[in-house]
């Protein structure tokens, strides 16, 4: 796997001279754009954090190895983006039908102060049953976000506080390698094929 990747890079370097224009497009406007250099999430195997899922079980990045994974950050007090993302994901999972069982789907809170295990349990129940809710200490949430290269920030409001946060959905293959993100506002017809692609890498891996 690692060797194949290395050859891939070597090939890309050789071709780079002739393909500068194309590569530029790819990075600036094309499908390469959502993942700027240096912001690529670590492989799950390189992440280290310990959280609790909405059923009270201890979980971490290792929990996600073996199946392709969809993960995203949010918080249950979020009125707009988070329920919309969870509904979108529920729609993609419905579109995948039984194949949805071959995926891990995790919603990690960036607001552990309010999002206790009980609150997460209550909240995820309104969406597709495959969606797991993860919470934990502020410190462990910070470590998780760092691994995913996700950011979040507490912002005071007249009514308490809200959270700014990375709203993209992260896709990993079954080996835990980052595949791509599905960005907020990305047309729905792109999302399901991206998930299928991550699942296909699982089958390639297995053979």
């Amino acid at each position: 796997m690692r060797r194949r990747k290395f050859l891939g890079y070597a090939g890309a370097v050789t071709a780079a001279g002739g393909l500068t224009l194309l590569a530029g497009w790819w990075r600036v406007d094309g499908p390469g754009a959502p993942t700027p250099p240096g912001t690529r999430p670590l492989p799950l195997t390189k992440m280290e954090f310990k959280l609790t899922d909405h059923e009270g079980q201890t979980v971490g990045p290792e929990t996600l190895i073996g199946k392709p994974t969809l993960a995203f950050f949010g918080f249950t007090f979020c009125p707009d983006v988070c329920p919309t993302t969870l509904s979108d994901i529920s729609g993609w999972l419905d579109a995948l039908g039984e194949d949805a069982e071959r995926l891990n789907v995790v919603f990690i809170t960036v607001d552990p102060e309010r999002d206790t295990v009980e609150i997460m349990e209550d909240y995820v129940a309104y969406f597709h049953p495959a969606i797991r809710g993860w919470t934990g200490s502020a410190d462990q949430i910070a470590r998780a976000a760092e691994g995913f290269r996700a950011t979040y920030e507490r912002v005071p409001t007249d009514n308490g506080y809200t959270m700014n946060h990375t709203a993209s959905v992260f896709l990993f293959d079954a080996a835990g390698d980052f595949v791509s993100t599905i960005d907020y506002h990305e047309p729905r017809e792109f999302a399901v094929p991206k998930i299928r692609r991550a699942m296909k890498e699982e089958t390639t891996e297995a053979t």
């Binding site: 950011t151 809200t162 990375t166 709203a167 960005d183």
Partner: peptide, 11 residues
């Protein structure tokens, strides 16, 4: 709600 080019949403 706006989402910046890093994918960070704020309101």
């Amino acid at each position: 709600t706006s989402t910046d080019d890093q994918g960070v949403s704020s309101m």
